[in-house]
Amino acid sequence: MSRHKKKHKGSEAVELNLAAMLDMAFQLLTFFILTFKPSPVEGQINLKLPPPQPVAGAKGAPKAGENEANNDPVQNLNSLIISVFAAPNGRIATMAVGEANVAGTTALDGRLKQVLGPESGASFDQVILQVGSKLKYDELMKVVDVCTKQTLANGEKLTKLSFVELPDGATP
């Protein structure tokens, strides 16, 4: 009986010292609070950027001069050239699709819809952007933004771009 009593007393005395664990937990908490830096929500534009290739005819297309009825100089070419000239302050001075000038990104959007869109019947699958060396990145992104919104004649989104640097002081 007395043995039973002793056992009972012993079980009552068992207490965990939580202070040490709490200290450690607070240290971990401090570490995570101090290193916590919420990352900004950034967007991105995914592109496939092959190195610039010479402008070539689309695969399977008739060779130059074969179709005498064709009077469109860019028909059956697979690369569309867009030139973006920079002003001295790094803003867009002028833009041209092929050889035709366009005023502003809204006009560029309209022109690209005509040239690249499903109704155009064109065979373009990539765009070569000729860019003035002084053009600032945010201005370039406005042009890239317009380009990546375009849908090609085959129904796919335009993601294939190439960049070519225009020499300093290049003018249309």
């Binding site: 991105q44 092959p50 600032k136 370039l140």
Partner: peptide, 27 residues
């Protein structure tokens, strides 16, 4: 956003020369 294209193109071209083709432009 103030980076001139000539300096950005150096990085892009170096990446292309080394075989990278997939790019994501952050904005």
């Amino acid at each position: 956003k103030q980076t001139p294209f000539s300096l950005l193109n150096v990085v892009i071209k170096t990446c292309q020369d080394n075989g990278f083709r997939k790019f994501a432009l952050k904005a």
